[in-house]
Design a protein around this nucleic acid. Sequence first.
DNA 1: GACAGAATACTACCACGGTAGTACTACTGC
DNA 2: GCAGTAGTACTACCGTGGTAGTATTCTGTC
Lengths: 128, 128
Amino acid sequence: MSQNTFHRLGDLQLRLMQSLWARGEASVAEVHATLPDDANLAYTTVATMLRKMEARGLVRHRVEGRTFIYSAAVAEEQVSGGMAEHVLDRLFGGSVEALVSHLLTRREVSRDELARLRKLIAERSHSS
Amino acid sequence: MSQNTFHRLGDLQLRLMQSLWARGEASVAEVHATLPDDANLAYTTVATMLRKMEARGLVRHRVEGRTFIYSAAVAEEQVSGGMAEHVLDRLFGGSVEALVSHLLTRREVSRDELARLRKLIAERSHSS
DNA sequence: GACAGAATACTACCACGGTAGTACTACTGC
DNA sequence: GCAGTAGTACTACCGTGGTAGTATTCTGTC
C-alpha cells in the first residue's frame, strides 16, 4: 500500500513538480522561468527547493556540464491521486459521491462538463 | 471568492474539527476521548492544539466553571469544500471530470456508489 | 485550612515548507 | 591570466503543525 506520503506537498513544490511533469527535464533556470511573473521568486529559492525535494525523493537530477538537469522522480498520477484520495478519505469518508456532490454545489459546472461526467460514469458502470 | 484559507489544515486539526462538528460542543477531555486509542496523544497536546486553532479562528470556546467548551467556528462545508477545491484547482486544472476519472480509476467503487453518482449528476443536469 | 485532582497557561522543541542571502567554483571572453 | 558570469552549496530565518512537559490556579473534600 505504501501509505502514500505525497499529500503534504505545498503549493510551490507542486508548481515545480508540474513544471517538470510538463517538460520532462529542466534546469533550475528553466523551471524558474516557467513560474508566473507575479510569483517573483529568487532563483536560489527554486534551486534550494529542488534540492530539498530531491532529498525527499520527489525529483532527481543528472549533470550536464555544470548545470543540474532535474526531472520528476514520481509520476503525476501518484501525486494527484494521493492528494485526491487523502482529501476524499479525510473529509468525505471515502465517498466519491459526497465529494462530487460538494463540488457540483459549490462550483459552476458547465453543461458540457456535466455531459462528460455522465459519460465517464456510464462507461465505468459497464466495464465493472 | 474569499480565497479560502482552510486548505492548510493538518491531519490532527482536521480530526479535532471533525470531533467538534460531530458533537457540536466538547471539552478538551471529550475531544481527547474521541481520538482513536492508537493515536495516543497527550491531553495537553489536544489542549494546545485547540488553543492554537482558536487563535486562527477555527474554533471558539465558552467557559463553563473552569472548563473550556469548544465548538467549531467554521462550517464543515467551508473546510471540506475549500480543501476539495484546492486539490481540484491545483492538481486537476479545475476539471471535476479529471478528478473523478482519477478516483474511479484508482479505487474500487461499488456498483451502488456508481449508481448514486449517476443519479446525482442526472439531477444536476436537469436543474441547471 | 491543607491537599489531591483537574483544568488551563506557558514554554520549548522538532520537522518542514518557503524564502533568500552569501560563499564558493568553474567556465568564457578578452 | 583575469574579470565577469552563471552555476551550485551552505546557512539562516520565519511560520505553522505537531507534541508534550512543567507551572499555575482553582475547586472540592476531609
